[in-house]
Structures are given as structure tokens and as C-alpha cells.
Simulated scan of single mutants.
Amino acid sequence: MSDPVSATPSVFAPWADPSETPLIHFQNVTKRFGDFTAIDDLTIDIYEKEFFALLGPSGCGKTTLMRMLAGFETPSEGVINLAGKNIVPVPPNKRPVNMMFQSYALFPHLTVAQNIAFGLERSKMPKDKVGARVDEMLKLVQLEKFGGRKPHQISGGQRQRVALARSLAKAPKLLLLDEPLGALDKKLRIETQFELMEIQETTGTTFVIVTHDQEEAMTVASRIAVMDHGRMVQVDTPDRIYETPNSVYVADFIGDVNLIEGNAASHHKDGKIEIHWREGEPPVVGTPMVPVQDGTRCTFAIRPEKVHISKEHPEGKANIVHGKILDIAYLGNISTYHVELPNGHVVKAQTSNNQRIERRKYTWDDEVWLWWSETAGVVLTA
């Protein structure tokens, strides 16, 4: 008998497979409100079973994009295909799309079960099947014991799950979530994020979520579209958005980052460049995303957790700066040190708090050395 071969888990990445057909296809979509362009000539594909996040500040166009998918707004130009069909002329109630709002919009006079059944009954589903579907949805969101309660008799997190169950009851091809966790406190929001991911995976429904919460998008999404002024600045997986941002805007928007701006100078044989950024400071050595010519104005972006801190001068390192601890942000599991260099520039370094706070190595006004490897950050020219 031959030895069993262990199956390698497949990576979910339909966007990387040319043979895959997208579920949603925006083709040169523009949306104007008078003289204001909310969405500017946007083309993007979203695939079946994706958990896709639209992320950006207020006014970037993410909600307008979602409302066009739902049918509440009509593009000024362009086509939106869903499962190969142009849905622009299709009214909202005829689209295989459902939308879950931040307010949940539950009927206060109906029970949890009746709220979930409401859309099914209006779709003229046979009564004997409505009850079974409601039970299935209650089980999916782990609220089997709460079907007879009214919305005011359950918690905020449970109301959120009722709204989710109601949205999924008719098995839409696409579920749109508009800031769905915004009304929850932080701890419950984090718990609910994982519940959302599990439910999305169980049902196989394509989720598109609108959020301005970077941590939320990084947690739940298979891919993130970072938006700015009606355009998608970068569309990629959470790890690539964080580790290899394609612009200063994305690097600065996602998480905490140190940005050092200067001019590219001498090049190393291995593709690394030197960035001259302050008189009296050694040049920063970094790895550019694309070839950079001498004299190009560029920005070196490095995350605080990749910056090392030491009281002793680190020997043999390429990127070393010296300064004084100006401030300390204690966040329980980590501490962020704000170190002011002699030229006034502040660099942030982050360390894990493996010991009790009274045993901390560094404190205010300590003189310290910071250093990082040549590949720890990225060189950006946009």
C-alpha cells in the first residue's frame, strides 16, 4: 500500500488566475454629482466568495461605489456587470444583492424570527419553507434560543447578527455591508469580525464591506481597495498593502509608519539605493520598488516594529540614527518610543513588552540608538 499523500491546502486567490471570471466587473465607471466627481473612471474586478473591503477616509467614494452596486445610484458613465449581466438598468429590488446597514433597521414590533422571515414572506416563498429557512439562519448566527425575542431584548452584537441573518436569508449572490460594526464597542467589534469571516466562509456569499477602520479591513478582507478621491490607489491582499504599499498615501493610511523624505543618490550593486535626507545624518539605505534615478525625490517608509532600539551603538549596521526619547506610548503588549533626532525629526520604534513595566529598559529623555535593516522598509516615489 502506498504512503498517503498529504493534501496541500489551496490558497484562495482567484484574482491571480487568468481563467477565473469575476462575479462583479466595473468597467470605466464614473459617477458625478453636478460638478463633483465621486467615482473617477474606475475599473475593477471582484470575484465570487471574496470578502472585499472598500477602505478610505470620508468622501473618498467608497459608499457611492456600494450604492451603485445596490442600485441606489446610477453611474454617469460605464458598466457594472454582476455574474455577466449589466445591472445598471436593473432596479434594486430585482438585483441578487442585499445590503446590511450600520443601523441594522430591524422592525422593533417583530420578533427576531419574524424579522428574518420578513423578506422571505414578501418574496412569496412557501410558508412551510420559510420556517425551515429561518431556523437555518438562526443556527448560522448562533441565535437559535432568541427567535422569540424582540430586538430591544437582545444585545447590540446579537442585533447585528439578526440583521446579518436577515440579509443572507434569501441567499443573495452579493452582500453589501455598510460600516456594519460601527455601533459596537471595540472588544465586541473584534469578536464580531471573526464571526463575520466564519459566516462568509460557511455561506460562500461574496461580501463587499465599506469601512474607514483599517484594522477591520486588514482582519476580515481577502483583498482591500484603498480609495482616495474616487480612485482606487491600491488593490491588494492585506499583507501586501501593509508590507509593500505602492505610494506614500497608502503607507501613511494603513497602520503606523515612519516616513523619511530625501533624494536618491548612489546605487549599490544589489539594487539598493542611498537616500540623502538631512545634513549631518548618514544616508538611509533602502530597497526601491522600481528602479530609481539619481536625484529622484523619494520617501523611505518603515514600520515602527521594524525599527530596533538600543542604548549601545549597534556595530555593523547600515541604517543607524541617534536621539533622545521624547515620548512613550504604552499599549499593554507593546510600547512605541518617539525618538527625537538632533535635527528635530522624530522616528518611532516599537518593542514588545515581555517584562513588567517597572523593568522597562528605556524611559523618557534616555539617549538611544535606532537601527533597521536595508530591507526592512520600502522606497516610494509616488
Rank of each mutant, 00 (worst) to 15 (best):
S2G: 08
P4D: 03
S6E: 14
S10P: 02
S19M: 07
L23G: 09
I24Y: 10
N28F: 04
V29S: 08
R32F: 13
F33G: 04
D35P: 01
F36T: 14
I39D: 03
L42S: 07
I46C: 03
F52K: 02
F52A: 08
P57K: 05
K62P: 12
T64G: 05
M66N: 07
M68N: 05
L69G: 10
T74M: 05
P75Y: 08
G78K: 04
V79M: 11
I80R: 01
G84M: 09
I87F: 07
P92E: 11
V97K: 01
V97Y: 07
N98C: 04
N98T: 14
M99N: 06
P108W: 09
P108E: 11
H109W: 06
I116N: 05
I116S: 07
R122G: 03
A132V: 14
V134R: 02
M137E: 04
L138C: 02
V141G: 04
K145G: 02
K145N: 13
K145C: 01
F146K: 14
G148P: 03
K150A: 12
H152N: 15
S155E: 08
V162N: 04
A163E: 06
L164Q: 01
K170S: 12
P172F: 05
L175V: 14
L176K: 11
L176N: 12
P180T: 09
E191N: 12
F194D: 08
M197S: 14
Q200S: 12
T203V: 14
T203H: 06
T203Y: 07
I209C: 09
I209H: 12
V210N: 00
H212M: 09
Q214E: 07
E215Q: 10
E216M: 07
E216Q: 14
M218G: 08
V220C: 05
M232V: 15
T237S: 12
R240C: 10
T244Q: 13
P245E: 10
P245R: 07
Y249W: 11
I254M: 03
D256R: 01
V257R: 00
L259I: 15
I260D: 02
K269T: 14
K272A: 15
I275T: 04
P282K: 14
P283C: 02
V285S: 02
M289F: 03
P291G: 11
P291L: 10
Q293I: 08
C298G: 06
C298W: 06
F300G: 01
S310I: 09
K311Y: 12
P314N: 10
G323W: 03
I325C: 05
G332N: 08
P342A: 13
K348G: 00
A349M: 00
T351R: 03
N354Y: 14
Q355T: 14
Q355P: 00
S373Y: 04
S373R: 06
A382R: 15
